[in-house]
């Protein structure tokens, strides 16, 4: 629980931070530190240098522009949870943020850090999948905007290159007529989701006209439950529909297994919470 020695830098501009990264390939970015610091204290990670992005003011803003909400990567979970703009225009993200860890974690942890870490049980990725979110990354070579399902490659593995920094997360402003919900069951020790399901449901004349379902905690990475979405679209908005569609929530996914949940239980929970999230979202869409 005592970290090995490391250098520390706190650049005040993105350009400075990128320079440090390209000069030192063993450097690690420190966002909120909620995953990095514990593994450093266990000496499972011994970076040569920790680059603290906390001083880069540009990375802290939340702004809306042409139907897109740009969330600075250093925005804390607490700031997302209590953002008036997001509460009004992207309540799904607010719901996901408010369930992350505990108050202390939410006060420090950031959306950029969470996405970069790509923990398979993190709450954000499910919501971001359902929101068709995009990740803006910047390197000295330029910038890229990557859809979330391309960004998260595997467990704890992303498309982020060592010399790149996530600067923004882009989510759409929610259309009228769409209801959203995030339903989760957490592992009581860590607070991570055993299963977390984010749903966005649009209704038209009593039928489901639009469905997005993102699921975290079940597989090696958060995923869009495409089979569920397909089973919902065009169907009447009623409990039977949700129940039948939810049955395929974990289809084709190799459900993880740990001390707290077997893969069978996880796969089962995926169906239960998918159904609950869809029903809650549909309820709000009406």
């Amino acid at each position: 629980m005592i970290a090995a020695s490391f250098d520390y830098s706190a650049p005040e501009t993105l350009a400075d931070a990128l320079r440090v990264l390209s000069d030192d390939p063993e450097a690690k970015i420190l966002a909120g530190g909620q995953s990095l610091i514990p593994i450093m204290k266990l000496r499972l990670s011994i970076p040569s240098q920790v680059v603290d992005l906390g001083g880069i003011i540009d990375l802290h803003a939340i702004a809306e522009e042409e139907g897109i909400i740009r969330i600075g990567s250093m925005t804390t979970h607490e700031q997302v949870e209590h953002s008036e703009l997001l509460s009004e225009k992207c309540p799904l993200l607010v719901a996901a943020a408010s369930g992350i860890g505990d108050v202390q974690v939410r006060n420090r942890g950031t959306i950029g850090g969470s996405v970069a870490h790509a923990d398979p049980a993190a709450d954000y990725p499910a919501a971001l999948q359902a929101l068709d979110a995009k990740v803006k990354v910047v390197s000295s070579a330029g910038e890229k905007i990557i859809p979330i399902d391309e960004f998260i490659v595997d467990a704890l593995t992303t498309a982020l290159e060592p010399d790149e920094i996530i600067t923004e997360i882009h989510v759409p402003t929610e259309s009228t007529g769409i209801g959203t919900a995030y339903e989760t069951i957490v592992q009581p020790a860590s607070g991570y989701a055993i299963v977390g399901v984010a749903a966005r449901i649009g209704l038209s004349e009593g039928n489901i006209s639009f469905a997005r379902v993102g699921i975290t905690g079940v597989g090696s990475k958060a995923y869009r439950a495409l089979a569920v979405e397909k089973a919902l679209e065009g169907q009447p908005a009623k409990d039977d529909t949700y129940g039948i569609a939810s049955r395929v929530a974990a289809e084709g996914v190799e459900a993880l297994e740990d001390l707290h949940a077997s893969s069978e239980y996880r796969a089962h929970l995926a169906t239960v919470f998918t159904c609950r999230a869809i029903a809650a979202a549909a309820g709000r869409a009406q």
């Binding site: 266990l42 398979p120 467990a155 704890l156 593995t157 860590s190 090696s220 993880l256 740990d258 001390l259």
Partner: peptide
């Protein structure tokens, strides 16, 4: 003792 949560997914990966 510290990595239970990640063992299964790590081995699969």
């Amino acid at each position: 003792s510290v990595g239970q949560r990640l063992m299964d997914m790590t081995s699969k990966m």
